[in-house]
């Protein structure tokens, strides 16, 4: 079957309404950039899920970063996406405008050289992410220990996907299948999603990120309706088993914990925290759980659960835009609202 036949099938599909959730921010961006929803039947609905790490981070985390930035000699180091996310009152950019030292990096490992150059400063890395980023944070700690660098700490909000997808299935009953996250699966292995596929009797298709790969995965999801199976269509990157090399590094410094997700609340076993014996690297990440909105009408919490589409939010394209984001989903390039906005997806 070639891609045109796949497109014809998906365009002509006229069965019951199907709701497929993508749980990777890169999938959300690719779906939007490639206009995938124009290529498929109106009966197939693509729903964005909790795949953007910045979007599922609770506001208290930002508040805590802002507090840390106000302490003399502290420097907050972060990925760019995080800087504009509103906390309950301020964003890191607001803190920077008031004089806090906040720096943007592309990789956590850049912090090693920065910290060595400025030994009198105390650096706090805003460590958000999923299974994919955790090994890099482990490498950061590993390198800091090896080189006896003592002025680095992490404020962690690192999350793991399967437990959150489990909870999502109990909250959002509409979903008929998942585009499983290609990058996360490269670490967890595709087998990590078998228990969920069986428990909820729905298909999970591990997908790559090109338009063709996503369309083929949607085709597989349609064909596998009613079956509790995992199908891996991204075999050149994703194996069935977990990536032992990544896990052995992560598990050296981190352990599973309960994590707080925007929209979901607390989920047991859905986070990764620094182990007690390495607590010198932890900028007191425990107990961050509160989520309050900068704007009460913001529907980010429903949007990350796929219970509302960005266009159903009363603020979307009115008060809330990438220039003036009211919630994290409009800030991050992986956020649903941002992608719907810049690609005029309806």
């Amino acid at each position: 079957m070639n891609i045109n036949e796949v497109c014809t099938f998906l365009k002509k599909y006229n069965g019951r309404d199907l709701y497929f959730m993508e749980i990777c921010g890169t999938h959300t961006a690719s779906v939007c950039e490639n206009g995938i929803d124009n290529l498929i039947s109106e009966k197939i609905h693509l729903v964005s899920g909790p795949g953007c790490p910045v979007c599922v981070t609770v506001s208290e985390y930002i508040d805590r970063l802002v507090e840390l930035s106000e302490i003399e000699n502290n420097v907050i180091v972060s990925f760019g996406d995080m800087l504009r996310v509103p906390g309950s009152k301020y964003s890191l950019n607001d803190a920077r405008a008031k004089g806090a030292d906040i720096r943007m990096v592309y990789s956590p490992l850049e912090l090693i050289e920065i910290a060595k150059k400025e030994p009198n400063k105390s650096f706090v890395f805003a460590a958000v992410g999923f299974e994919t980023t955790a090994p890099v944070y482990a490498e950061l700690i590993d390198t800091a220990l090896e080189q006896s660098i003592k002025n680095i700490r992490l404020l962690t909000s690192i999350k793991t996907m399967p437990a959150a997808v489990d909870k999502l299935c109990t909250m959002n009953k509409k979903i008929s299948g998942f585009l499983a996250p290609g990058h996360v699966c490269a670490i967890t292995g595709s087998n990590a999603f078998i228990p969920l596929a069986e428990k909820y009797n729905m298909p999970f298709v591990v997908s790559g990120f090109t338009a063709e790969e996503i369309l083929c995965s949607i085709y597989a999801l349609v064909k596998l309706q009613g079956k509790g199976v995992v199908k891996n269509l991204y075999k050149r990157v994703v194996k069935e088993e977990r990536n032992e090399k990544a896990y052995s590094l992560t598990e050296k410094y981190f352990e599973p914990c309960t994590a707080s997700w925007r929209g979901f609340g607390e989920i047991e076993g859905s986070g990764t925290a620094i182990k007690k014996e390495y607590e010198l690297f932890d900028a007191q990440s425990k107990g961050i759980a509160k989520d309050s909105k900068a704007n009460n009408l913001c529907r980010c919490s429903d949007i990350v659960l796929g219970m509302a589409s960005p266009k159903e939010c009363p603020l979307f394209n009115k008060v809330c835009s990438p220039e003036n984001p009211q919630g994290a989903c409009m800030v991050s390039t992986e956020g649903s609202c941002f992608n719907y906005f810049v690609n005029n997806r309806g």
């Binding site: 490639n34 338009a211 990438p322």
Partner: peptide, 16 residues
């Protein structure tokens, strides 16, 4: 127009 024939509207660059 994407190579698979989907049309989408482009906007100006948002963000930094």
């Amino acid at each position: 127009v994407t190579k698979l024939g989907a049309k989408r509207t482009l906007s100006v660059l948002y963000g930094e």
